[in-house]
């Protein structure tokens, strides 16, 4: 998948234009269909591309998940290549000569990767936990949304199949044994670490945005703005003023002139 694809992309580097006009980002329908963990991932990638100043169009597809080479959204189509998920997309964009963290020292780069892993390890799993295993959220939001584009009886069956898949993945990471309180505690630890690292700076590593900023924005902004029956995570994030301000700042800077087209 990604590894082989990346080799191919590297070979292709230099042969074609740096960033073609017709780059497309695929995801599910934004208003009706997409679930919020997927949406957070999409928003991270979009913010990252905006930060790099790259043009792309968003394509909405019912079966974006099945179209993706790794089975997860979002994925971008760049010339003849499909690249999915945050890390490979960052690597791919780098081979085209666009990079946000080129000025960072090795130590800062390592720290950036560590915080990105923290989000991937904690916030992403917590989002899945909330979306698929919190009864209220699953019944009222996740299940109807996930099945919304499919006819009966698929709209009832597919969410449960997806739930089983997510359960298997979370179980392998020992997350299914956690109670909701423990998950909240994990989120709190994660936000605390992020907030302490951000401190009073504009971005996590000084004056310029990095991919970590894109990722933090994608996940925190989604959790803050999504209207869920269980607002526990949003309440936790709101305890940290600098994180909330950070989200507003990025929102202003990158999405205001797009007419808030996330």
């Amino acid at each position: 998948m990604t590894s082989m694809l990346m080799e191919a992309v590297k070979i292709e580097l230099g042969a074609t234009e740096r960033w073609p006009d017709n780059v497309k980002l695929y995801q599910q329908y934004q208003v009706e269909q997409i679930t919020f963990p997927d949406y957070a991932a999409c928003l991270s990638v979009k913010t990252f591309l905006h930060m790099c100043g790259l043009q792309f169009t968003t394509e909405l597809k019912v079966n974006a998940e099945e179209m993706s080479p790794s089975g997860r959204v979002p994925f971008i189509q760049l010339g003849p290549f499909l690249v999915s998920e945050m890390e490979p997309i960052i690597a791919c964009v780098k081979t085209r000569g666009f990079q946000l963290c080129s000025e960072l020292t090795d130590i800062h780069k390592s720290e950036m990767k560590a915080y990105m892993a923290l989000i991937g390890n904690t916030l992403v799993n917590a989002e899945h936990y909330l979306a698929w295993f919190n009864k209220d959220v699953f019944d009222e939001v996740t299940k109807p949304r996930y099945g919304s584009m499919y006819p009966w009886p698929l709209d009832g069956i597919l969410p449960y199949m997806k739930q089983r898949e997510v359960r298997k993945r979370l179980a392998s990471l020992e997350w299914t044994e956690k109670s909701f309180e423990e998950v909240c505690e994990e989120v709190l630890t994660c936000c605390q670490a992020l907030s302490e690292r951000l401190d009073k700076q504009d971005y996590f590593f000084g004056k310029k945005p990095t991919e970590l900023d894109a990722m933090v924005f994608g996940h925190l902004f989604t959790l803050l703005t999504t209207d869920l029956p269980n607002r526990e995570f949003a309440l936790i994030i709101q305890k940290f003023d600098n994180l909330v301000n950070f989200c507003q700042r990025i929102d202003q800077k990158y999405y205001k002139n797009l007419n808030n087209d996330y």
Partner: peptide
């Protein structure tokens, strides 16, 4: 320091994930 503790949390996550 507070920042170092935050770094420690992040690096432990990095080890677990990678």
């Amino acid at each position: 320091s507070v920042k170092q503790s935050a770094d420690a949390v992040a690096f432990v996550a990095l080890i677990e994930e990678r």
